[in-house]
Write a protein that binds this DNA or RNA. Structure first.
Length: 571
RNA sequence: GGGCCCGUAGCUCAAUGGUUAGAGCCGGCCGCUCAUAACGGUCUGGUUACAGGUUCGAGUCCUGUCGGGCCUACCA
C-alpha cells in the first residue's frame, strides 16, 4: 500500500467553470484518486477555489456586493457543481481561508530570511477614477508600434508586440474606460528566482515521469533564464504582506500576488481538512514528518504548467524547509467547442451547472475522459457526445447489464445459478479479460485516460462477444447446466465490469453493484490473475435487475442543445 | 518578433526509425433474438498537409512551404 497526494489546479472563483476546465484538471484527478483508492492505497485528494486577484474584485463590484460575500456565494456554487459531478475531494477549500493567509505569510517571511526577497519601487499605471492600480492587461491604449487603438498593456493583439503599459499612447482604464490615468511609483516585493535556477533545473532533469509538454515548458523558462518576479500587488483583497508577524511597513494597501498564494493553498486546504477532523496534514506535506513516502500527483491545464514546474517550486525550495515537491505531473490541453475555445468570459460552451441540468454526471464524465485533451486540444461536439454515449454507455455497457440480468431474472428466478462447468468460451473470456485488465491498470497508473477508457470499453465488448457465443438462451433449450454457466459468468461479468467502471462512472457502477448485492468490501480493483472474479457472486444469491442504466440521447435533444448552446455556429 | 506543438480514413484519435499505417464512430452486407431496434461477425474507406533531403528502411529524423494551436512571467 502506497500513499498518494493528489491535487487538481484550483479553479478561479470568478464564475462557474465550463466542461473544459473540468476535463483538464478536476475530473482526471478525481478518476485517478478513485482508481488509487480502489487499489487499496491511501489517498488524499485536495482542491479549493482560487479567490484572490483583480478579477474577483471587479466581478464583485459589478455584482454590487462585497468581495467576500461574492466569493462566499461563488464558492458554494462551485462546491455544489463539483459535488454534482461526484468529484471525490477529501477537502475542497478556499484560498481566502485563514490557513492560507498564515502559510502564505510564513513563506513570504521565510523567503526573505533566506535572502530570496528584495523590495523595489516600480512604476504602475494608476486609475484615478477607478481608485486602483491597474494590472497591465487592464490598461488599454494605442500601440506605439502599429497604431492599433485597442492594444493591451502587456501585448498588442494586432502586431503581437510585447508592451509595457507605460508605453501605450492615450492609455485608459479597461475597467471604466477612463483616461484619467497616470504612472505612479509603488513598492513591491520581488522573489529572486534566479537564485534557485540551478536547483530547479536539476530537479526538472530528474523528473523524467513528467509528460513532454510539462518538461518542455519548464525548460523553456529555464533556458530563457528565471527573472526576479514581483509577488505583491496593490489590491485590498488577498493575503496581507507581513514582516515579523505584523503588517509590513509601506504595504498596508498591498497583498501577495494571487499566483504566489494560490499554490500554497494546496497545503493550506490540507490544513483545512485537518482542522475539520481529517487527520494530520504534516504527514502529507512535510518530508520530516512522515511525507517522505508520499507520491504527490498534480493535475492541471497547460496554462498552469510553468507555475507548477518553476514558480511554486522556487517558493518551496527557497524556503529551505522540507516541503513535499510534486512527483508526477499531468498536464492537459484544451477542449474546444466548434472550432473555438470554451470561454468563461465569453460564455462559450457548456458550463458545469448547465451540464448537470441536461444529463447525469456519468455521461459527461465518460465522454470527457474517453476524449480527454491529452496529446492535443480535443474537440467537443454534441454529435460526437451523442454517439459516444449511446454506443459506449447505453449499447455496450448498459445493454450488456440489461440483457443478462433480465434473462437471468426470467429464466433463472433472479438467482445466480448453480451447476455446470466452465468450458472453452469461459476460458477465452477470462484470458482476454486478464490481458486487458493488465493494460487497463497500467493506463490508469500512468494516467492515460483516453487509453484507459478505450481499454475498459474493450472489456465490455468482450462481455458481449462472450454472450454471443455462449448463447445461454439457446443452450437453455437442451442443456440447463450449460445455460447456467453462461448466466453465472455473465452476471459475474456485470459485477467486475462495474467494479472497473467505478473511477469513470461511479453512479452507474454503484447501481449495478448494489443491484447485484456486491458488498462494499468486494468492490476493490482486481488483479489480472484473479480467476475468482468469474465465480465471485454467491451461487443461489437473489438479485434485482437494475433499471436501464443509460437512456440514449435522442436526435431531438441534440437539436435542442445545439440551439441552446449555439453548437455548429458562433456562440 | 522569439520559442514550442500539431496536421494520419467522412468524423474523433492511435502507431520505441522496422512486416501490408491501426481503433472507435458513421456507412454496406451477414448472423443472433437474451437485451435500450440493442449485440456479434464481416467489408468498404489512406499520395500520413505539400515539396525536397538523410537512411537498407521515414507517419516518425532534417530543411522549406502552407494551415491550425499554445506560451512569452501584471488575467488566472
Amino acid at each position: 500500500m502506497a500513499r498518494y497526494l493528489i491535487t487538481s489546479a484550483i479553479p478561479y472563483i470568478n464564475g462557474i467553470k465550463h466542461l473544459g476546465n473540468l476535463a483538464g484538471s478536476m475530473l482526471p484527478a478525481d478518476v485517478h484518486a478513485r482508481f488509487r483508492r480502489l487499489q487499496g492505497h491511501e489517498v488524499l485528494y485536495i482542491c479549493a477555489t482560487d479567490e484572490h486577484g483583480t478579477p474577483a474584485e471587479l466581478a464583485a463590484a459589478e455584482a454590487g456586493v462585497d468581495v467576500r460575500a461574492y466569493c462566499d456565494e461563488q464558492y458554494k456554487i462551485q462546491r455544489d457543481a463539483c459535488a454534482g459531478f461526484k468529484l471525490s475531494f477529501d477537502h475542497f477549500g478556499r484560498s481566502s481561508n485563514p490557513p492560507n493567509h498564515k502559510l502564505t505569510q510564513h513563506f513570504g517571511e521565510v523567503l526573505e530570511k533566506h535572502g530570496m526577497i528584495e523590495e523595489r519601487v516600480t512604476k504602475q499605471i494608476y486609475s484615478i477614477d477607478d481608485k486602483r492600480f491597474l494590472p497591465d492587461r487592464y490598461v488599454e491604449g494605442t500601440c506605439p508600434n502599429c497604431g492599433f487603438e485597442r492594444a493591451r498593456g502587456d501585448q498588442c493583439d494586432n502586431c503581437q508586440t510585447l508592451l509595457d503599459p507605460i508605453e501605450l499612447i492615450n492609455p485608459r482604464s479597461k475597467i471604466s474606460g477612463s483616461t484619467n490615468v497616470e504612472p505612479r511609483d509603488t513598492a513591491h516585493l520581488f522573489l529572486k528566482q534566479p537564485l534557485m535556477q540551478d536547483r530547479i533545473r536539476e530537479w526538472v532533469d530528474k523528473s523524467t515521469e513528467w509528460p513532454p509538454l510539462a518538461r518542455s515548458i519548464a525548460y523553456k523558462w529555464l533556458d530563457e533564464g528565471l527573472i526576479d518576479r514581483s509577488i505583491t500587488r496593490d489590491l485590498a483583497w488577498g493575503v496581507k504582506v507581513t514582516k515579523d508577524g505584523k503588517i509590513r511597513a509601506g504595504f498596508e494597501n498591498k497583498v501577495y500576488y494571487v499566483w504566489f498564494d494560490a499554490p500554497i493553498e494546496y497545503i493550506a486546504s490540507t490544513v483545512e481538512w485537518s482542522e475539520a477532523g481529517g487527520g494530520d496534514w504534516e504527514r502529507w506535506w512535510r518530508t520530516d514528518k512522515g511525507a517522505e513516502d508520499v507520491t504527490y500527483v498534480q493535475v492541471m491545464g497547460k496554462d498552469n504548467v510553468a507555475f507548477h514546474t518553476v514558480s511554486f517550486p522556487v517558493t518551496i525550495m527557497g524556503s529551505q524547509e522540507p516541503w513535499k515537491l510534486v512527483d508526477r505531473l499531468k498536464a492537459f490541453n484544451w477542449v474546444t467547442w466548434y472550432g473555438g475555445k470554451f470561454s468563461t468570459s465569453e460564455k462559450r460552451g457548456i458550463f458545469m451547472d448547465q451540464a448537470l441540468e441536461i444529463l447525469p454526471s456519468d455521461y459527461w464524465r465518460w465522454y470527457l475522459m474517453a476524449n480527454a485533451p491529452e496529446s492535443s486540444d480535443a474537440a467537443f461536439t454534441l454529435e460526437q457526445f451523442q454517439q459516444t454515449i449511446n454506443a459506449d454507455l447505453a449499447n455496450v455497457f448498459g445493454n450488456f447489464v440489461n440483457r443478462i440480468t433480465r434473462f437471468a431474472a426470467s429464466k433463472f428466478d433472479s438467482e445466480v445459478p448453480n451447476g455446470g462447468t466452465p468450458g472453452a468460451h469461459e476460458e477465452k473470456l477470462a484470458n482476454e479479460f486478464a490481458e486487458r485488465l493488465a493494460a487497463l491498470t497500467q493506463c490508469h497508473e500512468q494516467m492515460e485516460f483516453r487509453k484507459a477508457a478505450a481499454e475498459l470499453r474493450a472489456i465490455w465488448v468482450a462481455g458481449n462477444e462472450y454472450l454471443q457465443v455462449a448463447a445461454p438462451w439457446t443452450a437453455l433449450k437442451t442443456d440447463r447446466d450449460a445455460a447456467a454457466v453462461g448466466v453465472r459468468t455473465g452476471l459475474n461479468a456485470c459485477a467486475v465490469f462495474a467494479i472497473l467502471a467505478q473511477p469513470f462512472i461511479p453512479d452507474a457502477a454503484k447501481i449495478v453493484l448494489d443491484a447485484l448485492g456486491v458488498p462494499e468490501a468486494n468492490r476493490n480493483w482486481p488483479k489480472p490473475d484473479d480467476k475468482g472474479v468469474w465465480d465471485a457472486l454467491p451461487r443461489g444469491h437473489k438479485f434485482t435487475p437494475p433499471d436501464v442504466l443509460f437512456k440514449k440521447i435522442e436526435d431531438e435533444q441534440v437539436a435542442e442543445l445545439a440551439v441552446r448552446f449555439g453548437g455548429g455556429g458562433a456562440a
